[in-house]
Design a protein around this nucleic acid. Structure first.
Length: 858
RNA sequence: GCCGAGGUGGCGGAAUUGGUAGACGCGCUGGCUUCAGGUGCCAGUGGGGGUUAACCCCGUGAAGGUUCAAGUCCUUUCCUCGGCACCA
């Protein structure tokens, strides 16, 4: 065996072996214990980035671990191939998005193979393939038929110069990214998926997702945002018609303190009142400026305008002024709120600004509203009792809400109502590179669904967008068609679907990528649900919620037997790196950290020596030029070193800080491991471990088996790969320290090395493929059996116990493993250093934690 | 603004159920090997004190609290990061 570690040869050799033996191909096996390990599919941007490498390394480690545990493992891969970047690249380079995307896929597939991921490539799926997206269209039509898809208007960002809808990402500081024009809101018709029909189930089922991180479940629960409240009507008469202005509130108990009503700028009443009131019209116009994101709406200064119009308080009969407020969201509740400045922070700020009356109607333990106007801690609490509320005085939150709801119901002005923050999912995108929405517009028949036998509606993949409008709308060949209903000339819908539609079910298609008869088949029910899903925390809400919704829709259509798509979820942290830049006038140039070195603690360019400024740590990105190219990394250090570093530097859920020195450290460890096995193997075969061992051999054997138990727990249960690797490093350190002076010693070392290689095989599969063979095994490491810890090897006759006095560490004692509480206590009190600290003081209490510590309280 | 997460040595991190703070690695210091080193090996490495030994004091963003015992639990607070529905 060659004594030096050459990653190029070892990795090429292992990858060729896996390829030739078809080692990653998976089949359905009715008897097997199936394990579906899924990583979020990449967008084919051109090259892998470190976030991908981290994601897929985690998935590969888990996959290979479960395979060694004897499970039938599926680990597939595909491409989230529709989306905006392909259109941007097309504009920049004049290449059609289809060509660009497919070239990228080919390149990135090669990169994934070079990292040694055990992916079953025979199941590869690309969402831009008509054989894939036809089923998006098919399910869309099924949902349309069931009323789960419907049309209504939605708000979009509008660039008035390019006459184009902009994505939120394309709006920078309120202006279009290409034109610099101030962005406006615009209402257009869109298709929606009725996710709110499943709101309650999506919420309550979160309790059963025990394999999901608590924080993700909490985020989803808050996103769905179930609140129980009351829908209240404020009657009015306008245009000789009696009508009601409905608001939703979770604090009906404060209704008697309502001193105004505010409606959203898009509210029908606001639009009607604007006709008679130029101020209101001007304010609504002003609200049209700016973007549509919630963050933007929620951070802008609260502003409003009085309409001069009044509605009637449903209990007191008082006149209540109607305002239009920019802080009222049309998309939530009724698009109108009652203003209770005495008990709501936002209402208070609004009332204070516009001199509206403030009434306190709930008293919290005698605290009263502070006239100076500072925010009060008890805002929002439901612990007070009503005051100055007529018949409701003295009632608590629940009693007051019930009484008021009952009175409102009696006069037709209200009812209890469960409200969700979750909104229906608008899927229409005014973009080219996406799945066409299968609808035809006919002058006679209106909106006509494309019949199933005419699917897929194929997207032309050779158009080049120019930045203004959707190129599909200019493609006569695409648009013109016959109406499926009347046969007359008609026009195709040019909107495409949100790419979240594509990614809501791709994991199902991996199970049956060749099925041209149906969207999914029996194989889908074999593999699903996904046992382990791994991806970025940034997908914690939208993608995962849409997938949970989509799964339920398919279940209710009889296509699936499961409720939840992902049993266990692991959300990985981002990969960070230093950011360096130089300022040249107004221009900032970013320099890659690989080109920067520290001289006397100052960052300078390695070539030239010009000093640069450090911005600190940030997510690896093109714009900050702080990425590390996985390809360069693999060429220099090998895939195993890259994988080892990524898994060792931080636990998977945390951010990972890139470190070139850390990769070198990982590489050094692999060399030490390689050398240890090579030296051991060079001395010929080792025998079986004998029954009688000296203390040193027994200790090494104990550590070997303790390491098995530790690594198994870390990989299988805790997903703390960093501590698993640390434990194997400690084992290797112990092996190197151990002096194998006889056959028994060599046998114990052989067992230890075998264990180290087997435990590392999921993490660094290439080097372990080679070393496993060198250790004399016939079967390849990928199919090796996962080691099990021998309880007999773990037994100890003596234990070390820590002794504290008043909680401070004062000594260590060694006791028999079977020693009883009394004996441990006596040994602890007998310790010299312990005696010094209890000398002359009365021992008040002695706490004994068996096998761990003794605390003497004096 | 709202929702979620995180702050531990010079650095990445460990401490799994409230029970030895700093495992493992990086970096640094000293030594050995080498013609040489961006090699390998050995030793040391939280801060302060100490007869440089034993050992003692301090120490997990900040301030309080609970407990025999707190990085871990509670309250308040500061900072950093992720998401906010058309980026994927």
């Amino acid at each position: 065996m060659d004594n030096s570690y050459k990653h190029e040869d070892i990795e090429a050799d292992a990858q060729a072996f896996w390829e030739q033996t078809g080692a990653f191909t998976t089949r359905e096996d009715a008897d097997g214990d199936k394990y579906y390990c899924l990583c979020m599919l990449p967008y084919p941007s051109g090259r892998l980035h470190m976030g991908h490498v981290r994601n897929y390394t985690i998935g590969d480690v888990i996959s290979r671990y479960h395979r060694m545990r004897g499970r039938n493992v599926l680990q597939p891969m595909g491409w989230d191939a529709f989306g905006l970047p392909a259109e941007n690249a097309a504009m920049a380079n004049g290449v059609a998005p289809g060509r660009w995307t497919r070239d990228n896929i080919d390149y990135m597939r090669g990169q994934l193979k070079s990292l040694g991921f055990a992916i079953d490539w025979s199941r590869e799926v690309a969402t831009c393939d008509p054989d894939y997206y036809r089923w998006n269209q098919w399910l869309f039509l099924q949902m349309l038929d069931k009323g789960l898809v419907y049309q209504k208007t939605g708000t979009v960002n509008w660039d008035p110069v390019d006459q184009t809808v902009l994505a939120n990402e394309q709006v920078i500081d309120g202006r279009g990214w290409r034109t610099g024009a101030l962005v406006e809101k615009r209402e257009i018709p869109m298709y929606y998926m009725r996710i709110t029909a499943y709101a309650d189930e999506l919420l309550s089922a979160l309790d059963g997702l025990e394999g999901w991180p608590e924080r993700v479940r909490t985020m989803q629960a808050n996103w769905i945002g179930k609140s129980e409240g009351v829908r209240i009507a404020f009657p009015y008469t306008l245009d000789d018609r009696d009508d009601k202005l409905w608001v939703f509130t979770t604090r009906a108990d404060t209704l008697m303190g309502a001193t105004f009503v505010a409606v959203a700028a898009e509210h029908p009443l606001a639009l009607r009142l604007a006709k008679d009131n130029p101020d209101v019209a001007a304010f609504i116009e002003k609200c049209r400026a700016g973007g549509i994101t919630e963050a933007e709406l929620a951070t802008q200064e609260k502003e409003g305008v009085p309409t001069g119009f009044h509605v009637t308080h449903p209990i007191t009969g008082d006149k209540v002024p109607v305002w239009v407020g920019n802080y009222v969201l049309m998309a939530y509740g009724e698009g109108a709120v009652m203003g209770v400045p005495g008990h709501d922070e936002r209402d208070y700020a609004f009332a204070h600004k516009y001199d509206l009356p403030i009434r306190q109607v709930v008293d919290v333990e005698g605290e009263h509203y502070d006239a100076a106007g500072d925010w009060q801690d008890w805002y929002g609490t439901k612990n007070g009792v009503c005051i100055q509320s007529g018949p409701y005085d003295g009632l608590g939150f629940k009693a007051a809400t019930d009484a008021i709801a009952a009175d409102l119901a009696a006069n037709g002005c209200g009812e209890k109502r469960v409200q969700y923050r979750l909104r229906d999912w608008g899927i229409s995108r005014q973009r080219y590179w996406g799945c066409p929405i299968p609808i035809v517009h006919c002058e006679h028949c209106g909106e006509v669904p494309v019949p199933e036998d005419q699917l897929p509606v194929v997207l032309p993949d050779d158009l080049v967008p120019d930045g203004s409008g959707n190129p599909l709308a200019k493609s006569e060949a695409f648009i013109n068609c016959d109406c499926p209903r009347c046969g007359g000339p008609a026009r195709r819908e040019t909107d495409t679907m949100d790419t979240f539609v594509d990614s809501s079910w791709y994991y199902m298609r991996y199970t049956c990528p060749d099925s041209d008869e149906a969207m999914v088949d029996a194989r889908t029910n074999y593999w699903l649900p996904v046992d382990q899903y791994i991806g970025g925390i940034e997908h914690a809400i939208l993608h995962l919620l849409y997938s949970r919704f989509w799964t339920r829709v398919m279940r209710d259509l009889g296509l699936l037997t499961i409720d939840e798509p992902f049993t266990n979820l692991l959300t990985q942290g981002m990969v960070l790196n230093q950011i360096y830049f130089r300022r040249d006038g107004a221009r900032i140039t970013y320099y890659n950290p690989a080109d920067v070195e520290l001289r006397d603690g100052q960052p300078v360019l390695a070539s030239g020596g010009n000093s640069v400024e450090a911005e600190g740590l940030g997510k690896m990105s093109k714009s900050k030029n702080n990425g590390v190219d996985p390809e360069v990394l693999v060429a220099r250090h090998g895939a195993d070193a890259a994988r080892l570093f990524m898994m060792f530097a931080a636990p998977p859920e945390q951010t990972l800080e890139w470190s070139e020195a850390g990769v070198e450290g990982a590489s050094r460890f692999l060399k030490r491991l390689y050398r240890a096995v090579a030296e051991h193997a060079s001395q010929g075969p080792a025998g079986a471990v004998p029954a009688n061992l000296d203390d040193a051999a027994k200790a090494l054997r104990r550590q070997t088996h303790a390491t098995i138990a530790k690594v198994d727990d870390d990989l299988g249960r805790r997903y703390t790969f960093n501590t698993a690797i640390a434990a194997v490093m400690e084992l290797l350190n112990a092996i190197n320290r151990f002096d194998a002076k006889d056959a028994a010693g060599r046998a114990v070392v052989h067992e230890a090395l075998n264990t180290a290689v087997a435990l590392l095989a999921p993490i660094v599969p290439h080097i372990c493929h080679r070393l496993w063979r060198e250790l004399g095994h016939e079967e390849p490491a990928i199919d090796a059996t996962w080691p099990t810890a021998d309880p007999a090897a773990l037994e100890r006759s003596e234990l070390e116990i820590v002794v504290q006095v008043n909680g401070k560490l004062r000594g260590r004692i060694s006791v028999e493993a079977e020693a009883d509480r009394k004996a441990v206590e006596q040994a602890a009190l007998a310790d010299d250093n312990v005696q010094r600290f209890i000398d002359g003081k009365a021992v008040r209490r002695v706490i004994v934690v068996p096998g761990k510590l003794v605390n003497v309280v004096v």
